[in-house]
């Protein structure tokens, strides 16, 4: 296997709440709790989870937009966990982020030419007309045109703004893009346009991508491999086709069965695994397997140790001790997950 573009080992991100005068002793919120994974150059890794699972925190922590509490992040072989601010600024040009909210992620006071031009400036200054040409190129690449140069973000529709966000990310020719729910705020018909754009661009320039979403269908569509997160931990990771055809972890199964299917005949026929209750607080997660409080297959032993990962097939791992249901062989090496 080629060397990974991004390699994350034992990543933790804990938030301590400092609100209130006397709350110093409150437990930290374990938004990300010991997560390891890697992304190969040109690979699309999907990250699925519900709100509160920590998936967005993973995205921002690997870019060090939020500082990790512990663990290591290697980007292109270089340990960037502790990289100084100056080095980080250089590296950020090679790793970009596309946000969910097409309204909040563009500076409302800047024109399109400035929003994208600013990003271009980071690669070194260009003569005025060359810069303009390059901006127009980028706009065309994402399906907009040079007519849009002088406009402000609020003059665009949601889908067009998301195109602008993508153009801005592409301007610095990144090697990795973190796409954090890039289409969640868009209408279905526009979602499809943006998804196609992402797939095309990803293929064209071979950029690696961490695609974060709560929508299993979209992740299945775009990702090569899929990770499922629950309460700060990865419960299952597998090649996309594998995980949908053959989910092992009870949470993955429940998630897949809960996702509505746009087919009324199928919807009426199938049996759903209905999960009881809701996500526990990440400030006070259950012991052992964090999913056990909602798991229909939980045993008393699930409350014990944190479950070790088991390997069921090539690249397919999960963290459930019910070997009778989920199967697989226990693995000790954390980094085995990455391959």
């Amino acid at each position: 296997m080629t060397e990974a573009i991004l390699e994350v080992t034992n990543l933790r991100k804990h938030y301590t709440s400092t609100r209130g005068l006397f709350s110093r002793g409150s437990a930290p919120v374990k938004a990300v709790d010991d997560v390891s994974f890697s992304i190969a150059p040109g690979e699309v890794l999907g990250l699925v989870g519900e709100s509160g699972s920590g998936k967005s925190t993973v995205g921002r922590t690997v870019l060090r937009l939020h500082e990790p509490t512990s663990g290591t992040i290697r980007f292109g072989g270089e340990d960037i966990t502790k990289a100084p601010a100056g080095r980080m600024r250089e590296l950020r040009r090679e790793m970009q982020i596309v946000f969910q909210d097409p309204f909040g992620s563009l500076n409302p006071r800047s024109r399109v030419s400035e929003i994208i031009g600013e990003a271009l400036d980071l690669l070194g200054s260009l003569p005025r007309d060359q810069k303009r040409d390059r901006v127009v190129d980028l706009l065309q690449q994402v399906g907009l045109s040079g007519d849009h140069l002088r406009r402000f973000p609020h003059e665009f529709s949601g889908g067009q703004r998301q195109r602008l966000g993508i153009a801005r990310a592409l301007a610095v020719r990144p090697k990795l893009i973190v796409a954090d729910e890039p289409v969640a705020a868009l209408d279905v018909s526009i979602q499809a346009q943006i998804m196609n754009l992402l797939v095309d661009l990803q293929r064209e320039i071979g950029v690696a991508m961490l695609f974060i979403s709560h929508d299993l269908g979209l992740v299945e569509f775009i990702a090569d491999r899929v990770m499922v997160m629950y309460l700060g931990r990865i419960v299952e990771v597998a090649p996309a086709r594998d995980i949908y055809a053959n989910p092992r972890h009870p949470y993955t199964k429940a998630l897949l069965s809960a996702a509505p299917v746009a087919d009324p005949r199928l919807a009426k026929r199938r049996e759903r695994i209905l999960l009881q209750g809701e996500l526990p607080s990440p400030a006070n997660p259950p012991s052992g397997c964090t999913f056990r409080t909602r798991c229909p297959f939980a045993l008393p032993e699930c409350a014990g140790e944190r479950p070790a990962y088991r390997k069921v097939a090539d690249q397919h791992f999960h963290a459930c001790i019910r070997d009778d249901i989920a199967g697989g062989e226990e693995v000790r090496e954390v980094m085995a997950l990455a391959t």
Binding site: R60, L65, I97, F99, S105, L106, P108, E118, A119, L122
Partner: peptide
């Protein structure tokens, strides 16, 4: 805390 500030950071601006 707006995302366009994070976007500027992510681009590597000073």
């Amino acid at each position: 805390n707006q995302e366009y500030i994070e976007a500027a950071k992510a681009l590597g601006h000073r």
